[in-house]
Design a protein around this nucleic acid. Sequence first.
DNA 1: TTCTTGTAGATTGTTGACAATCGACATTCA
DNA 2: TGAATGTCGATTGTCAACAATCTACAAGAA
Lengths: 228, 228
Amino acid sequence: MTLHAIQILRTSSLPMLLEQEIEHVILSGEFSPGDRIIEMEIALRFGTSRGPVREALRGLESSGLIEQVPKRGFFVRRLSAKQAADVYDVRAALFGLAGKLLAERITDDGITKLKNFVSDMDTAVAADDFSRYVTLNFAFHEFIVRGTGNTALAQQYLALIKHLRLYRARSLMFGDSMHASHAEHHIMVDAVAARDPAKAYAAHVHHVETAKQRLMSATPIISEHQEK
Amino acid sequence: MTLHAIQILRTSSLPMLLEQEIEHVILSGEFSPGDRIIEMEIALRFGTSRGPVREALRGLESSGLIEQVPKRGFFVRRLSAKQAADVYDVRAALFGLAGKLLAERITDDGITKLKNFVSDMDTAVAADDFSRYVTLNFAFHEFIVRGTGNTALAQQYLALIKHLRLYRARSLMFGDSMHASHAEHHIMVDAVAARDPAKAYAAHVHHVETAKQRLMSATPIISEHQEK
DNA sequence: TTCTTGTAGATTGTTGACAATCGACATTCA
DNA sequence: TGAATGTCGATTGTCAACAATCTACAAGAA
């Protein structure tokens, strides 16, 4: 257990911790897209000075969650409908690759875990427990991309997911999109369990593409020139 | 021209400039993978204090070019053969998407430009001008990914390219890999010019996959546990 | 020799202060 | 009334200093 503490200190520092905290604040919705982030406010909140805060903010800028306007400060990024659609296309390509790679190398144990995810989601869907479904769904996707063994792929994919949470129309997803979406999970897992890379690729790409369709069709005509 | 200066100031600040400069220093090879980066050294070199330098370094860390070990400093990242191979796989998926999207939306003018790139590279190949070929090749790839109109895709792809330059065996590419690689360019452009998304997708994926093969087969057995 | 221990110098982590700049409000003038 | 200008408070940009920590080298013990 001391080892755990050491591990923490080895990979953590004040700016890194702040980066995680600020990211959490943004993704949790406390700061909304377009909001200005005041350095001193963050510094006071976490009891540090502005230096580490600025470093953390710059890190978040590189990862694409916020943007900086010189002399004016940092702002939470806003994702237009067009940008969100673009991200979905990239995500589909990456997720397709993940499905293919996973089908090529998955172990029997991995297949069991995948099926457990699906049956847990079955339960959540049957109970109409949307919040639990969302949690499981995220863990399921993360398990898939990490299961590929390709770190670059997993990192890129998970970063994209974060970006999508900046899209304001995201909350429009609900109801039967859960049923439709989950039906596809079965197909994906079946293809992976059959260790059929081509089929897994297609199923995974299709899963993201239909998610894009659902989101975009649920989105009314939105002014496109939102992003400055 | 004042407008140009204004544009610079609008999007630039000392840390941003430093980030570009340091990135250039790394990619140019002056700092090698594994090298430690001393903040004061950079600060002295560019005539600033350590604050802006630290911000720039943190930005580069998020983009994946360097990594930080708390209390020890920043180090230029090292890419193992396995990691490089992984990046190639991701790159193939993204480039395939780029080919597909480009074939769907390219203008006649765009096709002309693509063909110009290819004929310029023809000339470089015929003259065995490797350095010019490399330059043109990069511009060609950048034109393709930007031509998709998908900013997220272009950014991710270009970031991956940068990462690959951290792989030490990269310099092994030469000679006939130039010929083989360029032959594929013709196929890619033909597919895009025919506005055939499926064919363009396949050609672009294939182009990166063979590049991966060439690099990996040129790489002797390298100790895999390089990265900590 | 080889390993441990101790010390000095170098480097990072963090802070507080000061200058520069921006946005908002009030004031002035047409 | 409405537009232009001036001023003030708030915020960012940068720096220099100090404390904490690490690395490298040297000295001594097994």
